[in-house]
Simulated assay, not measured.
Amino acid sequence: MHVSEAFFPQVDEHCLFFFFQSEIRGGELGTIFPDEIEEISWVSIPDAVQFMNLSKEYEQILTTQQTVPYVFNGQITH
């Protein structure tokens, strides 16, 4: 449903963020590429809007199952 990316210069990383809308049906959440994928998590749509660094108006787009455009977040320093 959404892809974004950002640079984190303090840790010298370039990250891609992929967001999927899905339904939990069972099993375990995990990855077969632990060296490449730092974290996978299930979150609510309001939480996803915050993680994607999108404005609140995108929550309506997500709840109506429309796609959200690609966003380049530039450099993020924490």
Rank of each mutant, 00 (worst) to 15 (best):
M1V: 15
M1K: 10
H2P: 02
H2F: 12
V3S: 05
V3D: 04
S4Q: 03
S4R: 09
E5I: 04
E5C: 06
A6H: 15
F7R: 13
F8D: 02
F8W: 15
F8Y: 15
P9Y: 15
P9H: 12
Q10H: 11
Q10M: 06
V11K: 12
D12F: 10
D12P: 07
D12A: 13
D12V: 09
D12S: 13
E13Q: 15
E13A: 10
E13K: 15
E13F: 00
H14Y: 14
C15P: 05
C15L: 12
C15W: 15
L16S: 14
L16G: 11
F18G: 01
F18S: 02
F18V: 00
F19P: 01
F20D: 13
F20S: 13
Q21M: 11
Q21V: 12
Q21G: 13
S22E: 00
E23P: 01
E23Q: 08
I24R: 14
R25F: 08
R25P: 00
R25A: 06
R25S: 04
G26N: 14
G26K: 10
G27K: 02
L29G: 03
L29A: 05
L29D: 05
G30K: 05
G30H: 01
G30P: 00
G30N: 05
T31N: 03
T31M: 01
T31W: 06
I32Q: 11
I32W: 13
I32E: 11
F33T: 08
F33Q: 12
F33G: 02
F33N: 12
P34I: 05
D35F: 08
D35K: 11
E36V: 07
I37C: 04
I37Y: 11
E38S: 14
E38T: 15
E38K: 11
E38C: 11
E39R: 10
E39Q: 12
E39H: 10
I40S: 09
I40F: 09
S41R: 11
S41A: 03
W42I: 08
W42R: 08
V43C: 09
S44M: 09
S44K: 08
I45V: 13
I45Q: 07
P46G: 00
P46S: 04
P46K: 00
D47A: 06
D47I: 03
D47Q: 06
D47R: 05
A48F: 02
A48M: 08
A48C: 07
Q50C: 14
N53T: 12
S55I: 02
K56Y: 09
K56H: 13
K56M: 07
K56E: 12
K56L: 09
E57V: 05
Y58P: 02
Y58D: 04
E59H: 06
E59N: 05
Q60T: 07
Q60C: 00
Q60W: 02
Q60E: 14
Q60N: 07
I61P: 04
L62R: 02
L62D: 00
T63R: 01
T63M: 05
T64Q: 08
Q65P: 00
Q65D: 05
T67Q: 14
V68S: 08
V68H: 05
V68W: 07
P69Q: 04
Y70V: 01
Y70E: 00
Y70L: 08
V71Q: 02
F72M: 10
F72S: 14
N73S: 02
Q75T: 08
I76H: 03
T77K: 14
H78K: 13
